[in-house]
Amino acid sequence: MILTIAHETVYRYDLPMRGVVQTHRLTPAKCESQSALSWDVTVTANEGARVVPGGGFRDGAGDWVQGCTIIGPATEVVVSVTGQVETRDMAGVLRGHRERIPPEAYLRPTPATVSDVAIHELAQTARAGLDAPLEHAHALARAVQAAVVYTAGVTEAHTTAAETLALGEGVCQDHAHVLIAAARCLDMPARYVSGYLQASEEGSPHEASHAWVEIWVQGLGWVGFDASNGVCTDDRYVRLGSGRDAREAAPIRGIARGPGSEHLDVTVAVELVQQ
């Protein structure tokens, strides 16, 4: 498939900020399931503010990380991503992706992905009677999908995996956090992946700006599971960056210095150009 992506993030500040520091994970990594045909990230700011590109590097997880600073007075910062990516359906298996972080490093929980008794029980119940690690991973993803109904607006950015499961509702970020916590209960390394999803016509729950989970399956490596949609990742998915939770994997992390409060607008369009 060839997908065209247009992703715009607009930060507005009600009072001028002295400066903004951002870390971008906005470049699709090259692997067998995807390859960028064209890709462009542009940062602009209001008149009077200055955008200074920072250092860039490929991190241990294989993601391109780009620093960016904006010298104020900043009232508006716009991060625009446009590009075209050719994708292949690899049945979720991440192959040909250069990375150095050992899978075991993903077994350590973060505040958002600490498991509780309920998550342990969910994981143990899902695994019962199954032998192969891949079956365990599939069973976990199904169990999380069944336990957490897709509902927008009930959870927040800081909602934890345990809170989500107790609530029984959430969005893709929450599904991912619960699945990561559950996988770790079975000693399976798991990580959060942020990226894009091409909208399907059937009307199943989805967001163009999406998140899912990769679980380390012995013998296969990292395999993508989208618990929100009950599938393994395929050629409709474009992978941007990963981390142990949503915060670590965020396409844009930023801190603004100044008295103002921030208003955020994100628009993402993913279009199918060629089947």
Binding site: F57, R58, D59, G60, A61, R100, I101, P102, E104, A105, L107, R108, R244
Partner: peptide
């Protein structure tokens, strides 16, 4: 080593 709390994934490869 890799599950150690002091092991910092953010500097792997550097």
């Amino acid at each position: 080593v890799y599950r150690n709390e002091a092991y910092e994934a953010a500097v792997v490869g550097f």
